[in-house]
């Protein structure tokens, strides 16, 4: 479900009530909620942004069936799609919540996947972050009108802005991959030797590259010039031993026009460990 401007599809009734109550109005600012730490909160304010509310989206998703060939390296497309679509559903709802608050974007976004024993073929996907709004207005949304999203902390957000860049969107790419089992003959050949296992190397290499290239494609779509804080996470989410998901995630950024010069770093000896 891609984001469409002004839509609040998929949000439960309580979300609309909560967000309308928080929005304020008639020149009066509403109360904000935020999972930013106090330092992060003040840094966002210093950068010209006020927090407007904690926003989130969630989806419980049934993951379909996929046949796998025991002796073949292959992407499990059904699972890749499920893991991607469910995350996108959660992200879209979070963006819709931010839109209802009239926010410019969301910082500190966390994406969580949880599986429960009571639902073997399901997983819960949740996206949560703090919606913020610039005090003086300005265009911080993505080219297609979405609020910007970013998994940067308040500290990183401030530093990014000072460095002359602004976040565009949280971009992600994933790949669920089945790593082929070894044949008996190959296992005998390798017994007792130091040797690279090319099919394993190739499988994990492929999967990682696919996830990364999908993340990059998203950044290109959103007109970004780069991705900061990119990470590739691997998780098997309780699947069989030869199935693994690579999940690439990062904040796509673009340069701010007429940005002031980057401040010089200074040497600090911190007393906090």
């Amino acid at each position: 479900m891609p984001y469409s401007a002004g839509s609040s599809e998929g949000l439960p009734e309580a979300a609309r009530q909560r967000l309308v109550a928080m929005r304020g109005g008639e020149g009066k600012k509403g109360l904000f909620t935020s999972d930013l730490s106090i330092n992060e909160f003040l840094l966002c304010q210093e950068a010209g942004f006020d927090p407007v509310g904690l926003v989130m989206g969630s989806s419980i998703y049934h993951i379909g069936f996929q046949f796998k060939n025991f002796y073949q390296n292959q992407e499990l497309e059904v699972l890749s799609q499920a893991m991607y679509e469910a995350r996108e559903l959660a992200m879209t709802r979070m963006e819709e919540e931010a839109d209802l608050l009239g926010a410019d974007g969301i910082v500190g976004v966390r994406l969580e996947v949880t599986r429960y024993v009571w639902g073997a073929s399901m997983a819960e996907f949740m996206a949560i972050g703090t919606a913020i709004k610039h005090r003086a207005g300005g265009n911080y949304r993505t080219p297609d009108g979405r609020p910007f999203t970013s998994d940067l902390s308040g500290q990183d957000f401030w530093t990014l802005l000072k460095a002359g860049y602004q976040p565009v969107s949280l971009v992600m790419g994933n790949c669920v991959y089945h790593v082929a089992h070894q044949g008996t003959l190959q296992a005998i050949k390798q017994a007792g030797r130091n040797i690279e296992m090319p099919n394993y190397t190739q499988a994990l290499y492929d999967a990682r590259e696919l996830a990364l290239s999908r993340m990059q494609a998203e950044a290109e779509r959103d007109g970004a010039t780069g991705i900061v804080g990119a990470q590739v996470k691997e998780n098997s989410h309780g699947w069989d031993s030869h199935v693994i998901e690579y999940f690439a995630v990062g904040t796509a950024v673009r340069p701010i026009e007429n940005a002031p010069a980057v401040p010089e770093p200074s040497m600090v000896l911190s007393l906090n460990g």
Partner: peptide
């Protein structure tokens, strides 16, 4: 069981509502 990928709409609502009500 269905073999397709799809959202479990009814079940999604439960935890979502709980979180929204609590945050309010």
């Amino acid at each position: 069981s269905t073999w397709a990928n799809e959202e479990v709409v009814e079940l999604t609502r439960g935890p979502y509502m709980a979180r929204e009500v609590a945050m309010g």
